[in-house]
Structures are given as C-alpha cells and as structure tokens.
Nucleic acid binder design. Structure first.
Lengths: 176, 176
DNA sequence: CTGTATCCTTAAAGATACTG
DNA sequence: CAGTATCTTTAAGGATACAG
C-alpha cells in the first residue's frame, strides 16, 4: 500500500500501485465486469446470453468481453457452426468466485428490505446456506478488521495454507 | 437473480434487482468507494487523509464520502476544534471487510509480477498470512463454484452459521 | 486545514445501423 | 444470431478558485 499512486491520465491508472485491492479493481472494478463474470458463473457462455441478461449496449459488452479475455479471466472458444464464440472462465476467472460470494453475502445482509430477498447462495449438495466468509487466521480464528494487518511480504509466512491443511482450530475465536 | 433488470436511465440503475451482487455493486461498485473504504480500514478518518492517500479530486472525494455516509457505511463525527469531520466505519461498513480481503487475495495471486508484491494481509497477532477465504458449506467443505447454487430463500437454511458454531469438519473437502 | 462550488474535458454508456 | 462501427449523450473525473 502507501501511495506510489501514479495518477495523471484521465481516470487514474491504478496498476503499478502496491495495493492488491487497487490492482484487482483495476481489472474487475468497473460497472459491468463483475456482473459479466457473475453470469459466467451462472453458466452463460454466449454473447447473446450475456446481452439478454445484462441489457447493456452491445458495443460495451463487446468491449468488456475483450477486456476480460485480455486479462485472461475469460477465454474464447470458437464455435465452428454458429460463427460465434463461447466465453468460458479460465482458472484465473474461477478464482474470482470468493469475491462474488463476499459481495453476495454482504448485499444479502444489507441491501434488501423485509421480504425482497428471493435467493440465497447455498451448498448445492445439501441445500443449506453457505457459511459467511470471514477473514481467518491459519489456526482458524475469525479475525476482525483490526486484527488484520498488512505486513512486509518477508515478515509473514507467505503460503496461503488451504483450509484442509490446518489442524483443528484451538483458540477461542474473536466474535464478529 | 434472473433479470428483472430495470434498465433505462443513463448508467443503469441496478437497485431493485434481485441479485445481491448487483445491489452491492450499486453501492460500492464504483471506482473510488472501495478504495476509500480500504483507507478507512487502514485507520484514515479525515478528509485530508483520504485526499492525500488517494489523490482524487476533492469534489469527487466529497461526493463519494457523502454517498457512503448516506449508505450508512461511514458515519460522520463532527470535530469541534478543527471544524472538520471524522469519517468512521459503521458496523455495516465494517462488514465489507471480507470483500476487501477477497479482492486483496485475488490481486495478490494474480496481479503481481515476480517480486512486485510488497505486502501480505496477515494475522496481526501471529504475523502469519491469512487463510485464503473460500466459500464453505456449513459442515466445512470448501466449495467450488459449481458446488454453489442460488436457491429460493425458503428452500435453504437461511441462517449463516458463524464459523464458531459448527463442529469440526468431517468430510473430505473438495480440492480447489 | 476542510470542505464546497464552478467550470471543463473526456471517456464510458446508450442507441442504432450495419456486416458476416 | 453474433458482433462491429458510428454517433450522441451524459455523468464521472480533474483543476482551480473560493468559503468557513
């Protein structure tokens, strides 16, 4: 973090900044990209599907799809028959899933009045709502914002242990 | 989900849509809001701090702060002495933390070349990197995108059990 | 030092027509 | 149906001057 912001150049170029959040937003932080990606997770693949679902202008959709392909979030598969393409999520694109889930969960909690909320994100197998995603330490404590810091890369254990690799959690967790 | 998109009206109004992601983005999905919120998590409180850190025009910063206050993500505390305000995160604002962490983790993994990455998000107590946040079922299985579905609200258990409330996980987890 | 008000520029978004 | 090419609109972003 700490601003080595480049600035200057209509609409502020955030690439080059140390902050990973800014870098992510640079790629995926505009009006439509995340919604397109959401639709891709829903299984949409063709131009027309995105277009119908999102209702945005075709030129914009076209531009966004290109941008996402350039960023290697989507890849294109030519479709011989229909002279069309299929846009499918790459692994890099698939790894955006936690961001969408986090957005969904926040919206679910804060952006609906009374009975407006019609759907919940659920485990497809058991049909139960997901756990709320929360920042968690390697030993399984849920961390409040103030318990999370940015540390110089070398000072901290870099490996992101996957949830599988940790033993059962031991300490009392901080309450959210 | 499934588009009851309202549309029409320069820059497409997403409120009113069933999709919680769209609703979240409506509030927080623009160029600057999430960066302002990031700074708020960093402890920034005053106009000038945000301004210096972000380098955006003051009128825009002003507008964004207002918008975030209206959305009850920030609250304003008048500061008698300095004739200034302090902008502090409300609980609703604090609950955006998982979104920022998810963005950070994705950016960390995908938006840096070689040695560019200088900081990692770490547990302040132990100084170790956080677990990667991943969608998880109530019994602790990490879920791949295709294992997550939107279900009608009533069909799924609505409560978001907190991580504390579940027993130790039992089944082999799906590998990411 | 905090912010607001004003003006100007530009690029993002929409509409529509058009090509394969 | 899938996309590209133009044209127009408009609001977001920047610069700067100004007020409490």
């Amino acid at each position: 973090m700490s601003n080595g912001l480049p600035m200057k150049g209509k609409r502020t170029d955030l690439s080059g900044v140390h902050c990973a959040i800014a870098r992510s937003l640079e790629i995926v932080g505009d009006w439509w990209s995340l919604l397109i990606i959401r639709d891709a997770f829903r299984g949409h693949k063709r131009f027309g599907e995105f277009h119908k679902s999102l209702g945005l202008a075709k030129n914009i959709l076209s531009a966004r799809l290109k941008k996402l392909v350039d960023a290697q979030i989507l890849s294109v598969e030519a479709d011989a028959e229909s002279a069309s393409h299929r846009y499918v999520l790459t692994p890099k694109g698939e790894s955006l899933h936690p961001i969408l889930v986090a957005l969904w969960q926040w919206g679910e909690e804060h952006c609906f009045e009374g009975d407006e909320l019609k759907f919940v994100m659920a485990d497809a197998v058991q049909g139960k709502a997901l756990l709320k995603m929360q920042p968690t330490s390697q030993d399984g404590r849920v961390l409040r914002p103030r318990d999370v810091r940015l540390l110089p890369r070398n000072a901290a254990a870099i490996s992101h242990a996957s949830r599988e690799s940790i033993g059962r959690r031991k300490t009392g967790a901080t309450r959210s």
